[in-house]
Design a protein around this nucleic acid. Structure first.
Lengths: 198, 198
DNA sequence: AAAGTAAGTAAACGTTTGTTTACTTTTAAA
DNA sequence: TTTAAAAGTAAACAAACGTTTACTTACTTT
């Protein structure tokens, strides 16, 4: 029997992300995607049940899966707090700034009810994304190093700014000066650390 | 001559926001909107050029306009830094948690290329949104009270977390315990302030 | 080398899309 | 009370939508 063409499978995913990034999720259609990937619309339906299935798998498996892997690289929950934070911030910065299409879908994950629901269900049913970060924060709360707040609150305080900083970096590439450098990221990270320490 | 029915105009806007919030921007259609508002599709086109025009005006005028007004209530750039910050955080918390449909479109403003572009153009052409906050931060940098970083960086450090906290509040209303209280908001705000002070 | 089968294509399905046409209603001004 | 004109409606337009049907291709297995 004829095997699946993995090149085409990868093309579907990467071109879908590209369209979402350039034209928006609301302008992605199956026919447009097929044409851009130089395949028949039917081929998409061999690999995905329907449009919603494609979007959810793209978001959960491809985008969030790779994002998690990239962020946790060389990170260990047992690291010293400041070191761990800087590792996570730098990993986030480098991964997102080099993967704009993936970042686009990540941001839609917070706006789109479909993707948001998929994320929450996955997070409940099969173990949370970013579990090592969970452990990391919990440990540092228990040792009394950082403020004792619920995980979701800590997460917002410690990681929201880095996502917005990368967004600024990517949205303003047309600016004359690139103000968001690795040095600025590290300075910002230190400011966040200073705030959360008891 | 027959005057415009302002009730219908308001219905179009509020029902559009409701659909976006419940089903997503990608599932808003002119015909669905007309049916939900109990009007003819043609009526929308009396008030808006086309779908993009509707979305942009909804975003820039209705949503961001009201958002700005609500956030800046009882705020003055000359306030003491910590007082100003707490005022802005509480205003944001109260406005967004009571205006979920508006918050939905605000979040799409960061994902959707159409809305993102509209925001940036408006911000450049006719004076920035949240100008008093600009002044507030600039002043406190000049007096040497807070870290000397570009406005966009300061803005990410000081205001990203509050938006994510409200998002958590709104997304998890089905949870048994509501962990995001006004007290948690104020504690979080203090942590952010502590970090940015020199 | 032949057979069997999933992968893949081209073209089309009915539906829904954004928008417009042709017409009716409403209301302020004459 | 008539009238001008914009507001509003119902119905329709072509185009694009998500998805499927009918068929061909390519590759593994025997």
């Amino acid at each position: 029997m004829r095997p699946k063409n993995l090149v085409k499978e990868e093309a579907i995913r990467s071109i879908a992300l590209q369209i979402i990034s350039e034209e928006g999720l609301e302008n992605l259609s199956m026919q447009k995607l097929a044409k851009a990937a130089n395949i028949s619309p039917r081929t998409i339906y061999i690999k995905y049940e329907n449009k919603e299935d494609l979007l959810i798998k793209l978001f959960i498996e491809e985008v969030l899966g790779n994002y998690e892997k990239a962020i946790l690289e060389n990170f260990d929950p047992k690291m010293a707090f400041a070191d761990g934070m800087k590792r996570l911030w730098l990993n986030t910065f480098h991964y997102l700034k080099n993967n704009k299409p993936a970042f686009s879908l990540i941001r839609y994950g917070k706006s789109s009810p479909l993707l948001n629901k998929a994320f929450q269900e996955k997070n409940i049913q099969q173990g949370a994304f970013f579990a090592p970060i969970h452990t990391f924060l919990k440990t540092n709360v228990q040792t009394g190093l950082i403020a004792d707040l619920p995980h979701d609150v800590l997460s917002a305080l410690l990681f929201s700014p880095i996502q917005d900083l990368v967004a600024e970096y990517l949205d303003h590439l047309n600016r004359p000066l690139q103000i968001i450098t690795e040095e600025v990221i590290l300075t910002s990270c230190e400011i966040v650390i200073k705030g959360i320490l008891k």
